[in-house]
Amino acid sequence: MIRIDIQPRWRFHQNDGSSLDPQGLALLQAVHDTGKLTEAAARTGYSYRHAWNLLGKWQEFFGTPLIILARGKGAHLAPLGEKLLWADQRIRARLSPQLDNLASELELELNRVLQASNPGLRIHASHGFAVAALREWLEQDSSWQWEVQFRSGSEAMIALQRHDCEVAGLHVPSGPLGALSMSRIQPWLRADQRVITFVVRTQGLILAPGNPHDVHQLADLLRGNLRFVNREQGSGTRMLLEGLLRRDNLDSTAINGFHNEEFTHAAVAAYVASGMADAGFGVEAAARQFGLTFIPMAREHYCLLCREDSLQLPAMGALLKVLQNPEFQARIGQLPGYALSRPGEVLPLTQALELWSKESLL
Rank of each mutant, 00 (worst) to 15 (best):
G56C: 03
H171Y: 07
Q329P: 04
Q7E: 13
G257C: 12
V268L: 05
R194Y: 06
L244W: 08
L37R: 01
K36N: 00
E345N: 10
A298L: 04
T38P: 15
A352Q: 12
I255A: 07
W52Q: 05
L110S: 10
A132Q: 13
L221A: 08
N225H: 15
A133N: 14
H216Y: 09
Y302S: 06
H171S: 07
L205A: 14
K73S: 12
A266E: 11
H127W: 00
T264Q: 15
I6P: 03
L189A: 13
V272M: 02
G337C: 11
G35T: 00
Q115A: 08
L66C: 00
K57H: 06
F150H: 01
T38W: 13
L106T: 10
A273T: 08
R9N: 10
T34I: 15
T38G: 14
E39R: 03
N225C: 09
A116M: 01
A277G: 04
L218I: 11
Q98S: 10
Q233W: 08
V31D: 07
E232G: 03
P79Q: 02
L114I: 13
W58M: 03
I6V: 02
L311M: 07
A130T: 01
N53P: 07
L106R: 14
V167R: 04
Q329G: 13
A93W: 06
G333T: 08
Q329Y: 04
M157I: 11
A41F: 04
E359H: 09
K57V: 03
P296N: 11
L250I: 05
